[in-house]
Amino acid sequence: MRTKINRLLLILLATAIGVMFIVPLIWMVTISLKSDIEAFLPDLSFIPKEPTLINYIEALKGGDLDVPIIRWIFNSLIVSTVGTVLVLTIDALAAYGLARLDVPFRKALISMFLSTMMIPGIVWFVPQYILFQDLGLIGTYGAFFLPATAGVFGVFLLYQFFLGYPTEIEEAAYMDGANKWQIFVRMFLPASKSILWTLAVITFMGIFNDYIWPYYVSGGNEDMLTLTAGIAVMTHGSYVNYPNKLMALSVIATLPILIVFLLAQKSIVKGIIHSGIK
């Protein structure tokens, strides 16, 4: 009996805290459905009196909002997708090489890669920007996703996974005359689907959600902003007075990422736990 009451109290507590976590998200949706006038009324009901989709329509069609939002969505998707594919490809190759092959200076390379994880990103932010400026890549898509290819996280995550793979099957495949590339493609890649998915989700979310780097490397060209960087610019522009329109954009920017997050939550948790923690 006592444990039952305890259980109930715990659920109530968890629900109360859960409500605090959810309310801001619901509030975002509520405001996005309000008209310009209603958005400023001191009303706390979560369902607007006259719900309207006008903010979404205007956001997507242009209208009052004179910013290229469709372009931003397109930019965000392109940059995140290309970046994720690139990161997955080169990280998987490198991790396989470092974990399973006779790469010269293997140990030295691994410790060099790992040691940079200790250095905060701000140290290379400005010089990295200058590099892209010197390469003439400011305001191009390359500037958005190329820095992600240098990230150590993915290599380390996959490296640890490949290390744990049993050697016997690999040896047998070598005996059968398979070469490294065939073993990588036919054995290691299929066996690491779930960890690759983990890395894909984390990488995609990272690039999609980042806004500081895109904000600067867009080079002041509004057409070359990503969705998140665009919203950051708008929060300080003339759109401060249109919270409902900003919220509609926020919903658009959040929905895809939240769906991915909810579908892939287990993978994300796995990624967090397997990286650097142990």
């Binding site: 976590f21 801001p24 997050f261």
Partner: peptide, 18 residues
């Protein structure tokens, strides 16, 4: 409890400013 972690900084800021 983990969900807000998925949200971008700009959306987080937009929501909490309101």
């Amino acid at each position: 409890f983990f969900m807000p972690y998925a949200i971008s900084a700009t959306v987080m800021a937009t929501i909490w400013m309101r």
